[in-house]
Simulated assay, not measured.
Amino acid sequence: MARTRYAPDRGLTSRMLVTMFLLGLVYVAFVGAFFVLVPKWGVIALVVAAVFLFAQYFLSDKLTIFAMHGRVVTPEEAPELHGVIDRICALSDAPKPRVAVADTDVPNAFATGRNQKKAVVCVTTGLLRRLDPVELEGVLAHEMAHVAHRDVAVMTIASFLGVCAGLLTRFGLEAGLWGGFNRRDNDQNTGLILLAVVAVSAVAYAISFVLTRALSRYRELSADRAAALLTGRPSALASALTKVTGEMARIPSRDLRSAEPFNAFFFAPAFSKGASVATLFSTHPSLEKRLAQLQKISGQLGRGE
Results as ranks from 00 to 15, higher is better:
H146S: 03
Q188G: 01
G126N: 04
G83R: 09
T156V: 15
E174T: 14
I193G: 05
Q188M: 13
L194S: 07
K117P: 01
I88E: 06
D151I: 09
V101W: 03
R130V: 12
D224K: 00
T104V: 08
E135M: 14
H142I: 02
V197H: 06
D151N: 13
G179R: 10
G126A: 09
V99D: 05
V197T: 11
L194Q: 09
Q116C: 01
L91M: 15
A214S: 10
A153D: 09
I207A: 10
H142P: 04
Y205A: 13
P107M: 06
L221V: 01
F110H: 04
V106Q: 05
G172P: 10
T212K: 01
Y218C: 02
C164D: 03
R87V: 03
D185E: 15
C89T: 06
V139F: 07
E143G: 02
C122E: 01
V163E: 11
Q116I: 08
Y218V: 01
R213N: 07
A153R: 15
L131D: 09
V99G: 04
L127C: 10
P95K: 04
N115C: 10
D105C: 03
R183V: 11
V197I: 14
E135Y: 11
G166M: 05
L91E: 11
T104F: 08
L167Q: 10
M144H: 07
R225V: 01
R225F: 01
T104Q: 06
R98Q: 14
E80S: 13
G179Q: 08
L177T: 08
T104W: 04
V200C: 11
D93P: 04
A158T: 03
L195S: 13
L173S: 09
D185R: 15
I88Y: 06
S201A: 13
K96I: 03
M155E: 12
R114G: 03
F181M: 11
K96Q: 12
